[in-house]
């Protein structure tokens, strides 16, 4: 083996070059990204989306296990008295806590401080579960500073009571739904990132630096083949439309190239009756061929189906 001095010098330069490039592209941006305060959007999103929407040991097959839900409370879960509609994020016992509660330093200094001191997030545990609220504190300049409040500590709310008080119709399985979004690869076509330079008019405001803290994965998408849906819930909040559209997009948009997601209904409908997909497809084909005036009726999804969760997720994208 022959060693040249050149190779030794070369190896050092190589280390220098690669190390330098990693310093610039990894170490330096980390200063910018670290101390960003989570915005209202980021807090809301991480609270409803939960710890992780992609693969994790808590839900390896992305089937919606161990997930928080977002509920709208109209009565106080403790007293049963009516109250102004309040959004709460319920983490039943055993659900992994959201990133900002697990690692409060990811919230940014100001939000971290408030969430710890006023929101008492340090007291939440995975084993007992918790209920969180998105609370705010008025600032001197008239704006509001948002933070996470652990209502289990501040108000003594426990997850089961809150779920019961809200009822199924006011419960959104958005976290479960986001996993379906990831699992079914919706993000290969629908981006979650209105672009900074245009897109304002059509797809809504592009997100800002602090809008993603605690979200995983962000699933921005890179090859848009369909509308951006980061704010779709603000444009279209019809469950009915979403249901038709997921079952067969061509029922509401004849030129759409979106795949049918009828299989997300599972075997049975909301009444526990078996869904006859073959019959449905045959009748739909007749409709397409002009042999029927109306398309067949779309079955109502069961309340624990993937389809329900996905629609809850999409409607949560405000």
């Amino acid at each position: 083996m022959v060693n040249f001095r050149e190779y030794k010098i070369g190896a050092r330069f190589f280390g220098l070059a690669l190390g330098g490039s990693m310093t610039i592209t990894l170490f330096m941006p980390s200063f910018d990204l670290r101390n960003v305060n989570a915005t209202e959007m980021a807090l809301d999103k991480q609270l409803w989306a939960g710890h992780e929407s992609g693969f994790s040991l808590d839900d390896p097959f992305l089937t919606g296990e161990h997930r928080p839900v977002r509920v709208t409370l109209k009565v106080d879960p403790k007293t049963g008295q009516p109250m102004a509609p309040t959004v709460a994020y319920v983490y039943p016992a055993g659900t992994p806590l959201p990133n900002g509660v697990d690692h409060p330093d990811n919230l940014g200094n100001i939000v971290e401080q408030l969430s710890r001191d006023k929101g008492r997030i340090g007291e939440a545990t995975k084993s007992q579960g918790a209920v969180f609220l998105l609370s705010s504190e008025p600032q001197g300049d008239g704006s509001k500073q948002f933070y996470i409040e652990n209502a289990s500590a501040t108000k003594g709310w426990n997850p089961e009571e809150v779920m019961k008080a809200a009822g199924d119709e006011n419960t959104y399985h958005a976290s479960y739904g986001k996993s379906i979004f990831v699992r079914e690869g919706c993000w290969w076509c629908h981006t979650l990132l209105p672009e900074e330079t245009q897109d304002w008019q059509v797809f809504g405001a592009p997100p800002m630096l602090g809008d993603f803290n605690g979200e995983s994965p962000t699933a921005f998408g890179s090859d848009r083949k369909a509308p951006d849906i980061l704010h779709v819930g603000s444009r279209n909040s019809s469950r009915e439309w979403m249901m038709l559209h997921f079952f067969n997009p061509r029922l509401v948009q004849p030129h759409s190239i979106m795949p049918r997601f009828d299989y997300l209904w599972g075997p049975v409908d909301d009444k526990g009756q078996k869904i006859d997909f073959d019959k449905w497809r045959a009748e739909y084909n007749e409709y397409v061929d002009g042999k029927r005036v109306t398309p067949p009726e779309v079955p109502m999804y069961a309340s624990n189906s993937d389809a329900r969760a996905l629609i809850d997720f999409v409607l949560s994208l405000k």
């Binding site: 190589f14 070059a17 690669l18 330098g20 490039s21 990693m22 610039i24 592209t25 330096m28 941006p29 910018d32 990204l33 990132l193 672009e195 900074e196 330079t197 592009p206 997100p207 800002m208 630096l209 809008d211 921005f220 890179s222």
Partner: peptide
């Protein structure tokens, strides 16, 4: 080694990454 290892952020030009990056 020097130039190709650095421009990762050009895949996210429309994301709110730091402008200098």
């Amino acid at each position: 080694v020097v130039f190709y290892s650095t421009p990762a952020a050009h895949h996210l030009m429309s994301a709110p990454l730091p402008e200098w990056l």
